[in-house]
C-alpha cells in the first residue's frame, strides 16, 4: 500500500470502487459541506471535493476536504493547476496531508473564461501531468520540485481525470499512458453517455496494458431532464451525449424524466461493470447529491466494502 487511502484499499481488494463528489459552497457555512457529505457518505469510498469548479470562486477544496475528513470520512481533494503555481500546490498537498487527507485528483481545470472571474490571469505554471509527477516525487522520492529533500512526505493516492470523448480521440489512450507514466494511481473519467465510444477507448487502454497500471473509475452523471441533456450536449466542452439519450428522455413526461435519467445511469453502470479494466464508478450527480445513494443501491453496489 502506498498510502492510507481508503480508495486505494478498496481497489487493492479487487472490489469495484465508488466515489462521488461534493461541490463546496460559495460562502463560509461548513454545514453545507457536512450536509452534502452526509447524503452520500455510506454509499461511497471517497468523496471528491471540487476545486473552484467551472472557474467559480468557492470554499477551497482543501478547507472543505478538511471539514469532510474531520467527519471521519474520506475526501478526495481536487487540485487544478489553473489557480496556483508549483510552490502553492506543493504546500497545499503538504497541508492537506497534515490534516490526514490521503487522496487527491490532479487536474488542469476549466479555463477562467467559463467562470465568474473571466478577467483573472490563469496560472498554468505546470500542467496536470506535471502535477501528478510533482505529487509522486514528493510521495515516493521525498523530493520537492526544486530538487531539495523533504521531511515527512505527504502520502497521497494520486488521481487524475481522463476524457475519452474529447478530440482527437486517437490521442486519448496515449494521453492516459502519459498520466500513467507520470505516476497516476487512478483516473475518473468524464461522464459517459456514449458507451460504444467508451468501450472503444477502454479496448485501447486494455490493448496497451494500461488497465493493469491504473484504476479506471467510469464517470456517471444522471440526467435530471432532457433540458440538461441538451445543455450538456451543446454547451459543455468535451462532452459526448448521443441523440438516443436525448430521445429517450424526451420520450417520457417531464415528471418522469428524473426517474428515466437515473434508470439510464444505472443501466450504464450495469453494462460498464462488464468491462475488464473498469474498476469502479465516479458518480457526478450535479446538484443532485440526494439521489446518489439510490443509484449506488440500484446498481447493486451497496453496501460498500469495509476495509
Amino acid at each position: 500500500m502506498k498510502t492510507e487511502s481508503r480508495l486505494e484499499k478498496v481497489l487493492a481488494s479487487g472490489a469495484m470502487a465508488v466515489t462521488s463528489e461534493v461541490g463546496p459552497p460559495r460562502g463560509v457555512d461548513p454545514e453545507i459541506v457536512r450536509k452534502k457529505a452526509n447524503m452520500i457518505k455510506d454509499h461511497v469510498d471517497g468523496i471528491n471535493v471540487t476545486d473552484n469548479q467551472t472557474a467559480m470562486v468557492r470554499m477551497s477544496s482543501m478547507a472543505a476536504g478538511i471539514i469532510i475528513k474531520q467527519m471521519g470520512l474520506d475526501p478526495i481533494i481536487q487540485m487544478v493547476t489553473r489557480d496556483r503555481n508549483r510552490l502553492a500546490m506543493q504546500s497545499e498537498v503538504i497541508g492537506a496531508a497534515a490534516f490526514g487527507i490521503d487522496t487527491m485528483l490532479c487536474l488542469s481545470g476549466d479555463h477562467p473564461k467559463f467562470g465568474d472571474h473571466p478577467m483573472a490571469k490563469a496560472v498554468y505554471d505546470i500542467d496536470s501531468v506535471q502535477l501528478i509527477k510533482a505529487v509522486k516525487d514528493m510521495r515516493d522520492e521525498g523530493k520537492f520540485q526544486g530538487g531539495a529533500d523533504m521531511k515527512a512526505p505527504p502520502k497521497m493516492f494520486i488521481g487524475a481525470a481522463a476524457n475519452p470523448f474529447a478530440d482527437p480521440f486517437e490521442l486519448r489512450v496515449m494521453r492516459l499512458a502519459k498520466k500513467v507514466k507520470a505516476g497516476v494511481d487512478f483516473v475518473q473519467t468524464q461522464c459517459i453517455f456514449n458507451l460504444e465510444k467508451f468501450e472503444e477507448w477502454m479496448k485501447g487502454v486494455e490493448d496497451r496494458g494500461l488497465d493493469k497500471q491504473v484504476h479506471v473509475l467510469a464517470g456517471i452523471t444522471p440526467m435530471k431532464s432532457v433540458g440538461m441533456a441538451r445543455y450538456m450536449k451543446n454547451r459543455v466542452p468535451g462532452m459526448d451525449v448521443p441523440d438516443e439519450v436525448i430521445k429517450r428522455l424526451a420520450g417520457v413526461s417531464k415528471e418522469q424524466q428524473p426517474e428515466e435519467g437515473i434508470k439510464i445511469a444505472v443501466e450504464s453502470m450495469e453494462r460498464l461493470k462488464e468491462i475488464k479494466g473498469v474498476h469502479g464508478f465516479h458518480i457526478m450527480a450535479i446538484e443532485w447529491e440526494e439521489r446518489v445513494a439510490e443509484i449506488v443501491e440500484k446498481a447493486g453496489m451497496y453496501p460498500r466494502p469495509q476495509v
Binding site: H111, D127, V129, K178, A182
Partner: peptide, 29 residues
Amino acid sequence: CSKSLLNGPCGGTSNGQCEIGPETDCAWR
C-alpha cells in the same frame, strides 16, 4: 494552448477546437 499545457490536450477539446471557443484551434490537436 489556452492553458499552455505541455503534455497534451485537456479534456475540453470539441471538434478540434479549444474549449474557450470555436475560433481557437486546439494547439494539441
